[in-house]
Design a protein around this nucleic acid. Sequence first.
RNA 1: GGCCCCAUCGUCUAGUGGCCUAGGACACCACCCUCUCAAGGUGGCGGCACGGGUUCGAAUCCCGUUGGGGCUGCCA
Length: 470
Amino acid sequence: MTTTPRYRFAPSPTGFFHVGGARTALYNWALTLREGGTFVLRIEDTDESRNEPQWTQGIIDALAWLGINNDHPQFEGPYFQSANAQAHIDAAMKLFAEGKAYFCDLTGEQVQERAKASGKPGYDGFSRDRGLEAGPGRVLRFRVPAGETVVHDLVRGEVKFDNATIEDFVLLRGNGSPMFLLANVVDDQIMNITHVVRAEEHLPNTPKQQMIWNALNVAPPTWAHVPVLVNEQRKKLSKRRDKVAVEQYREEGILPESMVNYLMTLGWAPAGDTEIVPWQHIVDTFRLEDVNHSPAFFDIQKLQAFNGEYIRKMPLEVFIAECEPFLTGETMPWPAGNFKQDIFRGMAELVQTRVTALTEVPAMIDFFFLDEPAIDDASWAKATKDEWASAVLSETQTAYATAEWNHDSLKAVIEQVGEKHGLKLGKVQAPIRVAITGRTVGPPLFESLELLGRETTLARLAAASQRLAK
RNA sequence: GGCCCCAUCGUCUAGUGGCCUAGGACACCACCCUCUCAAGGUGGCGGCACGGGUUCGAAUCCCGUUGGGGCUGCCA
């Protein structure tokens, strides 16, 4: 009889959802999907001092955004670790009854003092044979057996630990509440978890947990410890120091497809010469055995490059629809109500190749919807510094008053103006562009003018001439 | 300090003893294209940490050194 694999992702709700956590979740999810298993989401909320309910919802929302949600029959949860507290305590007491754990009345400070005095770090097993019963303030410690613990890890291979180097760790706090090491194991047993795929920082915990599994007479799961994600200093990504919130990347216009694809390439690569591959391809080919052993730098620049590619790959209609939330609403740079969908539609294709995040779209087309273009001083100075600028502006204005209003002819007009002054199109267009858009860079000018319309164009050219005359 | 993990271009990686004169991607540079900016195209820069083995042959296996990281909590 073969049991279907059961993977799990067990975050603790102590802050925004971390990109490292997202990658771990994705690894589990990909494996679940390919193997026809189950993905269990379990919120590890046993640290009452740090948990906040809103973070739980944040995790669920962020996972859903990445495509991990209960629309899929293979998704199970969320469960809450706190709901199993009694089972954790029962398991602990079973270990105590069997002599596999014992109570200790030393406080944390006392443990430290003893360690300092003896010169050996950690707990020294002071209460091992004192036969203490449960009581207020007494912690339950696991009696680490002599010998060696060998962890079989799908990405690391065999990792051996000398039990003598592992202290008798705490199972139950002085107030009776279960600790992570225990709760985590008991929950995995209750939920029939077969594969524990998590970040490498948990590797030192694994021999301890494996001993708990054995002490509880249950065969441990298959372990896999994937490398951590690091910052440019090659330190583990931290919520305090680094930009790690999945939510934030979402707000900044990163597409879930890009995030998913990029995260999967940290520590692993699809076969062949392309990294941008469909999720289904990843599901079909991802293997833990192929995961790299060393930490990976989370490179925002590369994430953005992925995102740019995903944006460009979108069918135009999809792009237009996806931009919608970023173009309407209070925070837009233009007066409410000024946005015109048909103008954006006309520009969309030209905008699409020029952004790496959807949040960049408004700035690309703001001049259409602003009553006056927002003139950037540096751009203005650069584009109008030549003595011919004034003449170009006024001559263009005159010609545009009667020109045929389509981008080809608008372009031809400027070419003629340029020719008169011995200037190439690249040069002459500069003052016009600044007059109309406020900047020296932006989407193609003549298509923009066509959509802007004659009236506004002439008004802006006139305004620019006036400004230049001052 | 102790335990554990890791080590290919700046970064992410391919590589599982001969296919490696080490491949791709991001970034960077140049050129082409071009109304600006992009996109696209072409090319360039740039790496097996070091030292010993093993082997006919090593980026690939072994040992050591060095360097990095994680853990070392009545957090998870």
